[in-house]
Design a protein around this nucleic acid. Structure first.
Lengths: 334, 334
DNA sequence: TTGTAAGCGTTATCAC
DNA sequence: GTGATAACGCTTACAA
């Protein structure tokens, strides 16, 4: 029992205690001090549940993501956390471990816990998602995907242009035999767009596309190793350059090249995508596309707060910019 | 308005609606189905705030950590999340961005939000922490530190023995000139213990300690680079091996060696500590100490749940084991 | 099998 | 300045 106990001890009504906490200026100094003292002596903390129930406002944002131990999500959440906390909101973290049923479960939970808004990080939008999202009337922002069947603000990465630019960068340096290490296309935005960027860059430069230079792996860390091994073993002509859709792919591919004595960048150029913290320190340092994941988190948080706080004219889709970080993993040839 | 609306629409009392949700077997099938249908038609979700207020139980665990975008924390949180979710608990995430005031603020918030338990990940226990922790009567588990002034269950990593073992491993391979790349000692457990392990290993093997072989950096990613640069430039005799207290230190040190044309392991052996996902793919693959961070999260979650659910005989301190992952970054000499 | 009503800990309205 | 009281949306005796 909280405020009632304090009221009794201080010999005032609960309204006065409430005022001491929320509007101290409305209470006579003497009373205020007496009540304040008792609050501190008893280490009293107001029960926010009661307040939240009454006000129908929790200052809680549900953050749903596939995994937290993947740096692109962790970094974005860092941006989310900073932004939300500055504005007095907190995070209900839901780690769905890449299971759709878990995600659905969490959408229910978010509603029952009466979160003020939802940030949904995902690599895939399935029918089940669409269906439940249509029903939810809590402010929602999706990060990493977009679907025309639902009208929800999104934060997206410019994977298409980034990939195209990365491949053009290699082409400008004389490369024509360029391998592509990708991720599954179920992941519309990264999987599909990075592949399209690669294909269009080749096409626009009059380079014919070779299926044997393309390998679609998954998100497991070691995939790049398998991918480039496969390409090198199966190709008649070994490529002179690699474009990898993630830095994990690039770094683990480099490890295979190292094992085989294929030197980077002398024998093989490589461009990654992500710019993980560690990519600056690979040997050689990896040239890669840098996305502002932290900034994406900040923007997503701001988008959802705008909706929560009823600001009109909310921007619907934010596209996160990219930059090419030139380092030492590519070489000009011919 | 929730349950009341449903009750009216179904022409039953709110208790019946409540029963349909919580104890359907107590309701006549016919009534149950009618109510259920109306619940679904209206997409009704019970308000957990009301229930939590009444029951004084939120099934929420406050997770306080310095940063989420550091793999050792993110991995541990993955373990925490899995364990908590399996048992029906959720995470209120508090990212304190390494500021003590923020941490204090979150301890307050946790109390006001009536979390059932708290998981406190930290690299440092200051007086302010001790003070507030003494006052809190919510079940609490500390991960990464221990202080004899407070009697709180802890999950610790066996940094001392792990470091000693890593250094002994180098000594067994003929190394006597071994550099140490450390982290600040304010971080009792990692900073101090890893240094002590290093010093004791040398001492017990009759190797004299050289100050010039030791460099205490910080947690920034690039520190290893600066550290080994400093040691190599200032030492009369260049060391033949390095033990680094984190993989970040090790990997960025390797990058410096690469730039200088110092070959690993031919000219310099190196052992790290953490076994990050990527460490298997450095060139050469990094020999390092592996800690089970995921398991630490699981154990911490279980500890706090045991306290929350009032199980007696709670284990007070859990020490997380380590293993040495032998890979290709060390060489036997002489 | 179902309904009534008290109570969880607050805030807010209105009176004194 | 201060106090009584209704209300927030639920669960749970207890009564019917």
């Amino acid at each position: 029992m909280g405020i009632k106990k304090i009221a009794k001890l201080a010999d005032v009504s609960i309204s006065t205690v409430s005022r001491v906490i929320n509007a101290p200026e409305k209470v006579k100094e003497e009373t205020r001090e007496r009540v304040q003292k008792i609050i501190e002596e008893n280490n009293y903390r107001p029960n926010l549940l009661a307040k939240e129930l009454l006000k129908n406002k929790t200052n809680l944002i549900g953050v749903l993501l596939p995994r937290i131990d993947v740096s692109i999500f962790a970094t974005a959440v860092e941006g989310v956390a900073k932004t939300l906390n500055e504005k007095g909101y907190n995070i209900l973290l839901a780690n769905a471990r890449e299971k759709v049923e878990e995600e659905i479960k969490y959408f229910q939970l978010f509603q029952e816990k009466r979160v003020d808004g939802i940030l949904f990080f995902t690599t895939e939008l399935k029918d089940e998602h669409i269906e439940i999202i249509k029903k939810i009337d809590v402010p929602l922002v999706i990060i990493g995907q977009k679907n025309r069947r639902i009208d929800v603000p999104s934060v997206l990465y410019d994977y298409y242009n980034a990939s195209k630019k990365a491949v053009e960068y290699l082409i400008e340096r004389g490369h024509k035999k360029i391998a592509f290490l990708g991720v599954p296309e179920t992941n519309t935005y990264l999987g599909q767009l990075s592949k399209e960027g690669y294909l269009d860059a080749l096409e626009e430069n009059g380079i014919s596309i070779k299926k044997e230079y393309m390998y679609i792996g998954d998100f497991a860390v070691g995939t790049g190793y398998t991918a480039i091994k496969h390409i090198i073993e199966k190709s008649k002509e070994i490529p002179t350059a690699i474009y990898a859709a993630t830095d994990h792919l690039a770094i683990t591919a480099m490890h295979y090249l190292y094992e085989k004595g294929i030197r980077v960048p002398e024998d093989m150029s490589i461009v990654g995508s992500d710019d993980m913290e560690i990519s600056k320190y690979t040997n050689p340092a990896l040239t890669t596309i840098k996305y502002d994941y932290f900034g994406a988190g900040v923007q997503a948080a701001n988008l959802v707060l705008d909706k929560v706080e009823g600001k009109s004219g909310v921007l619907k889709t934010v596209v996160i910019d990219y930059t090419l970080q030139e380092r030492d993993s590519t070489k000009r040839i011919k």
